[in-house]
Design a protein around this nucleic acid. Structure first.
Lengths: 164, 164
DNA sequence: TAGTCTATCGCAATGCATTGCAATAAGGAT
DNA sequence: ATCCTTATTGCAATGCATTGCGATAGACTA
């Protein structure tokens, strides 16, 4: 997803989550349902993303894909990642340095917290995030997207150190 | 601030906020206190940032600075922005597209909310953010940095439209 | 004033992400 | 099997941000 202001998430767009069918099968079905094609490269990119299990930057994914297929180019990788994201199978958020970090939706939706003091990075699962999302909704009316929740602050131990 | 994981905010680093002295004077004092120099270009860049009053991307600032001084280069602009940030006079966050957005600390600390449905972008002032920050602290122990609070989600009207 | 030290600047190169365009390949229809 | 339509791909170019390096210029000392 080039992620500018023109990009929109269509309401009600969710992958079928039938655990019986493999991820690859569901991906293929989703893509073909849109009149698009499921190619070897797309399979490879999805595999690499799945193997990266969690968090990989765009550049890392490009590198890993190219390691497996020299003919793959960055544009194809990024375009495929956009496609996976449009279909709801993957998502990305911008890390502290503004670079993209992708993960599969298979991994439970989660936010990210970065400590400006020690650099620690922790994840935030749905349960922990729930009260936060509730507070955001109360204060603003917005239903925040957990996957894009990327926060910075100071972790407990750095706060303690600073207060000393 | 190149904003990678090596960058750290030192505790207790806050600009003097004596409203008597002009921003330029305080900047100059802060910079020189570190054995560094207050140059014409730095003054210009600070002026441009102040005139942009709130939100300008790095590229926009570069463009405006170059409009006033052809000899200025992107590297100087970004390095100066980093310096202003280190001194606590400015800060940046990454917008939805991952690009940098800078503002002076003069502007009250505030977060940003982007709607994935309609693209609306609203600001979040300290008061509105307070319960959110409190929820984050309760859930995680982190003291989140309001200026870096950059959230995405769905605004009330888009939520209503989706629920239809 | 002359000399030294070092902060700053411009330049050029690099990395990451994106996009337009032309060539290709896949799939469906006849 | 052949043709036609259109999705996909690779390439090259672009934009934004960053960094190393050499040249410059400012500040301070003697």
């Amino acid at each position: 997803m080039h992620c500018n202001k023109d990009s929109r998430i269509l309401p009600g767009m969710k992958p079928t989550t039938d655990p019986q069918r493999s991820l690859a099968t569901r991906l293929q079905a989703s893509v073909q349902a849109r009149g698009q094609r499921w190619t070897e490269q797309r399979q490879l990119i999805a595999d690499v993303l799945a193997a990266s299990d969690g968090h990989a930057t765009g550049a890392e994914l490009v590198e890993r894909v190219r390691a497996a297929d020299l003919s793959a180019t960055p544009s194809t990788v990024y375009r495929t990642l956009d496609l996976l994201e449009e279909l709801g199978f993957a998502s990305h958020h911008h890390g502290v340095d503004g670079r993209e970090t992708y993960h599969l939706e298979e991994v439970l939706a989660h936010g990210h917290l970065y400590c400006q003091g020690c650099g620690a990075e922790v994840e935030l699962d749905a349960t922990a995030a729930k009260p936060i999302l509730a507070a955001i909704e109360r204060a603003t009316g917005y239903a925040a997207d957990l996957d894009h929740l990327s926060l910075q602050g100071r972790c407990p131990s750095c706060r303690a150190a600073a207060a000393r």
